[in-house]
């Protein structure tokens, strides 16, 4: 009997990570990795002076 396990959240550095796995016969048979937060850095940078980019992106 296949079981699904969801581990959520996994990371706190690159946003929230969710891992879902399907287990059958004591082994993982399928897996899904899901980033749970939107990273809007690209949109923040538009229209700004290119010299701002290093200081802003460092905060990703």
């Amino acid at each position: 009997m296949a079981k699904k396990i969801m581990i959520d959240p996994i990371t706190r550095i690159e946003g929230h990570l969710r891992i879902e796995v399907e287990i059958s016969g004591g082994k993982v048979i399928n897996a899904w990795s899901s980033g749970q937060m939107f990273r809007g850095i690209e949109l923040i940078l538009r229209g700004r002076d290119p010299r701002d980019a290093p200081l802003i992106t460092q905060r990703v």
């Binding site: 706190r12 990570l17 796995v21 287990i23 082994k27 897996a31």
Partner: peptide, 28 residues
Amino acid sequence: LIGTPVADPKRPLEVLRTVHSFDPCIAC
């Protein structure tokens, strides 16, 4: 993750081993 043995689905330590080995920081 495919093929990873999981001794106890309620305590998926083996899954975490591989996910952690890629170096996401964790508090979950």
